[in-house]
Each structure stands twice: as C-alpha cells, then as structure tokens.
Amino acid sequence: MTVPTSPLSTANATIGYGRVAVSEGLTVDIPEGEFTVIIGPNACGKSTLLKALARTLRPSAGRVLLDGRDIHAQSTRSVAKRLGLLPQGPTAPDGITVADLVARGRYPHQGLLRQWSAEDEAVVAEAMEATAVTDLAARGVDELSGGQRQRVWIAMALAQQTPLLLLDEPTTYLDITHQIEVLDLCAELHRKGRTLVAVLHDLNQAARYATHLIAMRDGAVVAEGPPADIVTADIVDEVFDLPCVIIDDPETATPLVIPRSVRPAPVAAV
C-alpha cells in the first residue's frame, strides 16, 4: 500500500512545538518529480509539515522517511546531499558576498581532506547562472533587493545539488513581480527534473505553478492531487472558509479563485 515513487514522506507522524502537537498521525507522501505546493490557512500546520520533512523539527511520534528510511537515523550530512532546504527568513552574515554565500551550499560535499575543488567552483558558477545572479557575484548580499536576495538563496540551495528541494514560503515579503520571478525559477527547476516542495500563501499562485497540491487544515490533510482536482469551490470553502467561484486562468487555464463578494446588496433608500 506504500507509494513506491515517494522519496520523502511522513508516516503517522505527530509534529509540533514543545508539548503542543500541530499535527497528529499525519501521513503524507511527496511524489517524485512533482512540484508539490502545500496550502492552507494560517496555523494549519503547513510550515510545520515542511519543517518535519526538512528534519529541522523532529516528530514526537511516527517517522519521516527519506528514500524509505527514517530521516533521523541517517547521517545529517548524507541527508544534505539528497535534500536541500530554503527556510523562512534565512540570515546572512554582514558583509558576505553573493559568491561566498552560494559557495556555502557546497558544505555537505566537502570534508576535512576534501577542500574547495574545481568541481565546487563549476557547480557554484552553474547555480548562479541558473538563478541569474552571476552579475551580482562580487556584490554584498546586504546591498541586494529582496527579489535578488531570494534568488541568491535559491542559488545556494542549488549549489547543494540535491534532487529534492524544500522551500518555506519563498515568496513572502516580495512584491508581485519578484514573487512571479521566484515561482518561474522554481517551475524551471522542476522542469529540469528536481522534486520541489514549497509552502505558499497565495492560492492562485499555488494553482498556477504546482503540479501537485496538498491542502491542509487544523493539522490534517484535507485533499491532495493535481490543482484542477483540488482547487474547487467546495474544497476551497472547506479549507479556507471562503465562499468563491472558480474560473479558468485566462493565461494558463489553471483554476483561478474568485472570492464571493460578502458586501450586502445595496438597500433601496426608504
């Protein structure tokens, strides 16, 4: 009954902070080769799930499996060669340059006796190329705009060369142009063969970019599948308590959520 093509999954996992469980008995499979987006209202447990998948949060019961084996039973360095992570609001030390930050993505591939190599150099150059930050290489990260900075962080995660990449709200705090830019970049990475998992707030962006959606509420998965099956008026209302109509996105033909107007109809003056 297990899905053989899931490189990353939770099995009956209870996840939370301290003694407060956000999710109990959660079983989720991340399908291989898909761009999975986790959606749901605030505090539904979507970021918590991502943290558990990324092993920054250890489940108090149940397991998280990477390639079928408990992720916490594997050496963190070998996991880091399979699974990259871009957390929410990462911090860069003062004065670090773009090239130096991207180079830090090579950490799991280096060792005491295996120092910086020509291969590392080539991978870093390729990662900067893919995210269009090559021209910024010598700039300080703190001088960049929010959108540029996010591309640099994605480049760092790419330099890690992992087939799986997890992104926790990669578009938060970006203006609409940079949100689209980052999502286009994610779609491109997915097209080139990476398995992506992202937490997104914007339902319409999720419907447009994801190939697999996981909708959560109150710590549980309500529905999952391709966006066309998940983004329906019934499910959106069930997950978000939002009455809406769904139309086709005129650009991509993906589902587009139009919230119903809740203003009362104009009342005739007495």
């Binding site: 943290k51 990324a54 092993r55 920054t56 050496s75 963190t76 360095r77 070998s78 996991v79 880091a80 060669k81 699974l83 990259g84 992570l85 871009l86 957390p87 929410q88 609001g89 990462p90 911090t91 860069a92 030390p93 670090i96 930050l101 830090r104 993505g105 950490y107 799991p108 280096q110 005491l112 760092m156 995660a157 890690q160 997890l166």
Partner: peptide, 23 residues
C-alpha cells in the same frame, strides 16, 4: 579552528545549517 566550516554554515541560521548537514 576545525569548527570553522560548520560555523560558516551556522552563520546562515540554524535551519539553513541543518539543511546543509550541520547539527
């Protein structure tokens, strides 16, 4: 001095460091 490289990873935050394979 041997801690220099993991400390470079830790400078990016605990979550990023974990992602890079540092506990």
């Amino acid at each position: 001095v041997l801690l220099a490289r993991p400390l470079n990873a830790l400078a990016l935050g605990d979550a990023t460091a974990t992602g890079l394979g540092v506990d």
